[in-house]
Write a protein that binds this DNA or RNA. Structure first.
Lengths: 159, 159
DNA sequence: TGCCTGTCCATTGACGCCCATGGTACCCCA
DNA sequence: TGGGGTACCATGGGCGTCAATGGACAGGCA
């Protein structure tokens, strides 16, 4: 498995350290990345985190804009400029800096949320409400898809 | 046979483990997936479960949205973020985490229900009533189809 | 000198892995 | 066709390992 899936919430200790879930660590290791690449998520109170796959995706995103264009500069600043590469200690823990914690409103606990090629770091309470909202949207889309099936293409069976 | 069919109900042991029905296991093995990919079913108190085929379906759903778009992030959180890849022990058993059990209202027994390319995990009592309702719908639909069959094609298997 | 950071070790509780058992359905052979 | 044997499957339980967490200790920088 080379995707980040599932979610867990872990606590920060008195020194501000937090364990990266073992499952996520193994994905990072398979990805060949030592440490944790992360930056404040755009437009939401969370932190994007991952390894080489995430970095490559960002690079591809920025490369779509012509060199020296204003968009490119802005994207580069917003993503690269705010990125950090956190070191992991021998037990697989990291410490977030103040900027990241402030952005996500993190105090003493963290929700790790797998998103496939990357994962996000949330303040647990905020994640709960975000998840409720997201679930509602997915359900709405499912209904929409369901109404198209039969009239249009129907790839494999569907619930 | 590479489809999940039929239904059985099995019991959880004192450690919370439950055997995946041997027939389902063999389908998973043929699918080349080690373990069990699963997530809370949308809009119903059940758990969707399967292997690579199911994961590919989720991936396709998310891939419809551009990277870093808000929709994609939310969908990924709702789908990947609530997914689990459960490990199977040497005897083909898994243990469900609390989130999944709560969602489906599972206590000490499980109904495994084949749905073709995936299967669902239900609390047995709830499944009985769900099945009764579904049977009624199918009967109604069959009448409807009967008038169309011959004029139309019947698309792939469906729940 | 004092604090922050990185490294190392200890604890404990959960989980993975292994072996054992009982029951059942199927098969083979008389 | 019936009886015995066998193989597979669901289930139970023991035990070792690993993950999450807490804390001690040694540099390095201000």
């Amino acid at each position: 498995m080379n995707r980040f899936v599932s979610n867990v919430t872990l606590r920060l200790d008195s020194k501000g350290r937090v364990s990266i879930p073992a499952h996520f660590r193994s994905v990072l290791a398979r990805d060949g990345f030592d440490g944790l690449y992360c930056y404040p998520a755009l437009g939401r109170p969370a932190i994007d985190a991952g390894g080489n796959a995430l970095m490559a995706e960002i690079e591809a995103l920025i490369a779509r804009f012509p060199p020296f264009s204003e968009e490119r500069e802005q994207f580069a600043a917003a993503l690269y400029g705010t990125s950090e590469t956190l070191k992991m200690d021998g037990e697989g823990r990291v410490v977030l800096n103040e900027a990241l914690k402030t952005h996500a409103g993190i105090k003493d606990a963290i929700a790790f949320v797998g998103l496939g090629h990357k994962f996000q770091i949330w303040e647990p309470e905020r994640f709960r409400s975000e998840l409720a909202e997201a679930t509602e949207k997915v359900r709405a889309l499912k209904v929409q898809l369901g109404s198209r099936v039969g009239a249009q293409d129907a790839p494999g069976a569907r619930e």
